[in-house]
Design a protein around this nucleic acid. Structure first.
Length: 441
RNA sequence: GGAGAGGUAUCGAAGUGGUCAUAACGAGGCGGUCUUGAAAACCGUUUGGCGGCAACGCCACAUGGGUUCGAAUCCCAUCCUCUCCGCCA
């Protein structure tokens, strides 16, 4: 099995060094588009190092070739009993040994330098990505449904939950600290109902349901996300090479590490369930309290592995699925496209699906859809076995739904003036047929 | 946690210091012969990565290191899998 072959942490790259060598201008232009000008000198630097490395490699390979040849001669001479002649050839090999050791050392140093740089050179973004510096310049693409503001006041989401006796944050803080929750009664049931409904929604659209591992090895983490993300997000199990997943995308993409997938098996269209664990380092404001930003939540995810030429098409289908799901629950949404400067280095294109908050009178993020191009596949060596050789797959992922955050949108949009919450028809089978949640106080 | 066995290509598996790692042998896949068609039989073909215009060369036998002119093979360390026992949802 492949499992242990790449346990050692190896930094790896988003772009092919060959591509950088042959298209330095494209790579530089891309860096500028992402407002990372400080990385510009690295391109020429890495191309120089690469040239030096290939020369070193070639000389070392030649020396190895000569050693291999001479060693065979020694074997033949020994077999014939010609010991003296064998000794002479041995001396020849020894003469090259020192130079080879030198080259190997240099080769390793160069490789490490190259990798360190390549690790920071961002993925080429899709031409359709809007250029902008940070998240202020993200672009609204399309709205779905009317963002209604009712003529009664919508309470903060934890207050709505409390009116049903549905949340216990105080106990959660005592037991696990800030960023955890107990969901109780109908609210807990609603949480499970949403997950189950989302699962069936995706199964009906032809996706295969998967329950993956909730912990993964360090090398898989490195393959699916960049190092700064990893530091800020991932919980590590003490004394083990295991991390709690931040999303099932991690274990779902990791499933194909070092694999060659037959062309005819593609596309792989999967929907996975998992709890997600995130450190969420850094301070968060008022609007991120309650169950908005937490250390543990559950999520139904969709993941696609496909041929390069199909990733655009799947990207559009993926975010549309989330829009459709929210619309089926009468929640207004919009799509917000990530601009170049806000796009993670691993991604070619990404958008957020945002749900309407009638309380805040604005949209807020409930899901994120990304096309990673071949960046994850390059890092994890996920290849497609084609007629004319192997090539890297493209990978995409998107949130189907992530309660409890999604519950915020659900409760706010389905709250009635009398404090009750109506259950959309489509969700009722998952709620034991209930049409309405009635507050306890 | 204890005791054994083991990690080689798509799978099973041989190889225990050189002339079998473009990896024996078997299976599977692909192409072909035969056949009305199929099965069977037979023949051929089939690892991945890097460099090079090419010829060709290098690397990879779980991982890392060591011994050696030369390591799948010997030595050291680490990881993992399987079987049985124990414990346990």
């Amino acid at each position: 099995m492949y499992v242990n072959q790449h346990r050692e942490r190896k930094k790896s790259e988003m772009l092919d060094i060959k591509f950088v060598r042959e298209n330095p201008d494209i790579v530089k232009e891309n860096i500028k588009k992402k407002f990372q000008d400080q990385k510009l000198p690295l391109v020429d630097e890495v191309i120089g190092l690469d040239k030096e490395n290939r020369e070193t490699q070639q000389e070392a390979d030649d020396l190895r070739a000569s050693r291999n040849k001479l060693s065979k001669e020694i074997g033949a001479l020994m077999a014939q009993g010609k010991k003296e002649e064998a000794e002479k050839v041995k001396a020849q090999v020894a003469a090259n040994a020192e130079r080879l050791a030198e080259l190997e050392k240099k080769n390793n140093e160069l490789k490490e330098k190259i990798q360190n740089i390549m690790y920071t050179i961002p993925q080429i973004i899709d031409p359709s990505v809007p250029i902008g510096k940070d998240d202020n310049e993200n672009v609204e693409i399309e709205k779905f449904g009317d963002p209604v503001v009712p003529d009664f006041e919508i309470p903060y989401h934890t207050d709505i939950m409390e009116s049903f006796g549905g949340i216990d944050l105080d106990s959660a803080r005592r037991v696990a600290g800030n960023g955890f929750y107990y969901l109780v009664g109908d609210i807990a049931r609603l949480h499970s109902a949403v997950i189950s409904y989302a699962r069936d929604f995706m199964i009906d659209r032809g996706f295969t349901y998967v329950v993956p591992p909730f912990m993964i090895h360090g090398n898989v983490v490195q393959g699916v996300m960049s190092f700064p993300e990893m530091e800020a997000m991932m919980y590590k199990i003490e004394g083990e090479d295991l991390y709690l997943i931040g999303t099932s995308e991690h274990s779902m993409i990791g499933r194909y590490i070092d694999q060659q997938i037959k062309e005819e098996e593609l596309p792989l269209t999967l929907t996975s369930y998992s709890p997600c664990f995130r450190k969420e380092k850094g301070a968060h404001g008022l609007e991120e309290r309650g169950v908005y930003r937490i250390h543990q939540f559950e999520k139904q995810e969709m993941v696609v592995i496909c041929k390069p030429e199909e990733s655009h098409m799947w990207y559009d289908k993926l975010w549309q699925n989330t829009v459709d799901l929210f619309r089926s629950l009468d929640i207004p949404v919009r799509t917000l496209e990530c601009c170049s400067g806000d796009l993670a280095d691993l991604k070619c294109k990404s958008c957020d699906v945002e749900a309407w908050s009638p309380r805040q009178k604005k949209y807020f993020e409930v899901g994120s859809c990304s096309n990673l191009g071949d960046a994850q596949a390059r890092r994890l060596r996920i290849r497609i076995k084609g007629e004319n050789g192997n090539y890297l797959a493209h990978t995409l992922n998107n949130t189907v739904v992530a309660p409890p955050r999604m519950l915020i949108a659900f409760l706010e949009n389905n709250l009635q003036a009398d404090g009750s919450v109506k259950i959309p028809e489509i969700l009722r089978p998952y709620m034991g047929g209930k049409e309405l949640l009635v507050p306890k106080k």
